[in-house]
């Protein structure tokens, strides 16, 4: 079977200060090539200031069917959200 290299997931920071965002993936042999290919594939329209590439095989994912047990425990902990708190009438900048 032909070997098209590993799949690498690509994350791009569009401006300094912003988080790196997943944009897709590319095939490449080795990390230098992965970075170059990501640059050529995903920044053709000046979309980025920094690129991360991560080998797809190295990513561990939660399982969507288990969403419940994974994410529901925090549903009842709304005290973690700022809107949970009632501020006195007229208070500003808080």
């Amino acid at each position: 079977m032909d070997n098209q290299g590993d799949i690498w997931e690509v994350f791009i920071q569009s401006k300094p200060g912003l988080a790196h965002k997943h944009v897709g993936n590319i095939h490449a042999m080795g990390k230098e090539m992965a970075l170059q290919n990501a640059r050529d594939m995903y920044t053709r329209r000046q979309e980025g200031t920094c690129i991360w590439v991560v080998k797809f095989a190295d990513i561990t994912s939660s399982i969507p069917e288990e969403d419940g047990s994974f994410f529901e425990p925090s549903n009842d902990k709304i005290y973690r959200q700022a809107v949970h708190y009632i501020m006195p009438e007229g208070s500003k900048n808080i």
């Binding site: 032909d2 070997n3 098209q4 290299g5 590993d6 042999m29 080795g30 990390k31 090539m33």
Partner: peptide, 16 residues
């Protein structure tokens, strides 16, 4: 392009 892909794979195996 086959020899090119093979070379790149071989290099990546040795160097990554």
């Amino acid at each position: 392009g086959r020899w090119v892909r093979e070379a790149a794979n071989a290099y990546a195996e040795k160097n990554n």
